[in-house]
């Protein structure tokens, strides 16, 4: 039972991060039916920018919380600019092109971003300074570390804020209107180019925060880290129903939990044949399962029609 609860806590932490990244995929898909496969690399860039800034500032004697805050802000700014550039340079010229073209562009872009990161940060692992004191609450046999608490709480706040933005504000209405019918949205006075760019910027800001969370949680970052993370977050978005915001949140949390529980029990289940290093298998079993049995995802509407 304790192992179960412990893995649940771990899973919710991981899932919060997946959810933040999945939101970026789902927002962009929702508004322009495009899978921005370069999104995982934006997370990586955010993580490494934050690492660099935090290392530099804490090396100069900045108090740790301030250095972290500066790192997060720097990562957000860099990622938002990157998101803007990606949309402008890679996707906007292809809006009327066949669907395959932006997909190939996205893959090319991922490779470019990874190699650029390798040039800037090298191919080794960058370590994260211990920022939060390794405090934790033990509750029964379950241990919740401070960093886990911060990740879950912050992700929850950000997601609540995003839902309010999209559901309750004029900008959110314009985003949903643009997603549904960009031509008519223009007739209402919506600058749809700007709304689409803004969607990329918003998703990239979430990616930056998620990137910082990953390195803070695992204490390392590397130029290849965006690939697997991006793939899993994409899986989470599909699991929840791509294009659907609450779906991405739910999908992210579920995937994190499935993966952690799987990692916790796979040894027992297979008589020790597979170790927890096989945990990634679960994410892709989930992806295949969803695609086969429930292709619209948990909260996705049947055939996300564009009216």
């Amino acid at each position: 039972m304790d192992i179960f609860l412990q893995q649940l806590v771990n899973g919710l932490t991981l899932g919060s991060i997946y959810a933040l990244v999945a939101l970026g995929y789902t927002m962009v898909y929702g508004i322009m039916e495009l899978i921005n496969f370069a999104h995982g690399e934006v997370v990586m860039v955010g993580a490494l920018v934050a690492l660099t800034v935090i290392q530099a500032l804490s090396g100069q004697g900045w108090p740790v919380p301030l250095a972290v805050l500066a790192g997060v802000l720097a990562a957000m700014v860099v990622c938002m600019v990157l998101g803007l550039v990606i949309e402008r340079v890679a996707y906007r010229p292809l809006r009327r092109a066949p669907k395959l073209a932006p997909l190939i562009t996205a893959i090319g872009l991922s490779i470019v971003l990874q190699q650029l990161a390798a040039l800037i940060w090298g191919r080794g692992y960058l370590s994260f300074p211990a920022v939060l004191p390794p405090v934790s609450v033990a509750w029964g046999g379950v241990i919740i570390t401070a960093i886990q608490g911060v990740i879950v709480a912050l992700a929850g706040l950000i997601m609540a804020g995003l839902l309010v933005l999209v559901q309750k504000t004029a900008l959110g209405r314009a985003m949903r209107a643009t997603a549904q019918n960009p031509a008519v949205a223009q007739l209402m006075g919506v600058n749809t180019d700007r709304v689409i760019a803004l969607t990329f910027v918003l998703g990239s800001a979430l990616a930056a925060v998620a990137g910082v969370m990953v390195v803070a949680y695992y204490n390392v970052g590397n130029y290849t880290m965006g690939f697997m993370l991006g793939l899993k977050a994409f899986t989470a978005a599909v699991l929840g129903g791509i294009g659907n915001l609450p779906g991405a949140m739910l999908g992210g949390l579920l995937l994190g939990v499935v993966e952690s529980l799987g990692a916790g029990y796979i040894g027992d289940l297979t008589g020790g044949f597979f170790g927890s290093n096989y945990k990634d298998v679960f994410a892709f079993m989930v992806l295949i399962g969803v695609l086969v049995f429930h292709p619209n995802g948990l909260l996705g509407s049947r055939a996300q029609e564009k009216v």
Binding site: A170, R173, A174, A177, A185, M188, G189, V190
Partner: peptide, 8 residues
């Protein structure tokens, strides 16, 4: 409300 979008 979308109709009035351009009016802020």
């Amino acid at each position: 409300l979308m109709g009035a979008y351009h009016r802020g």
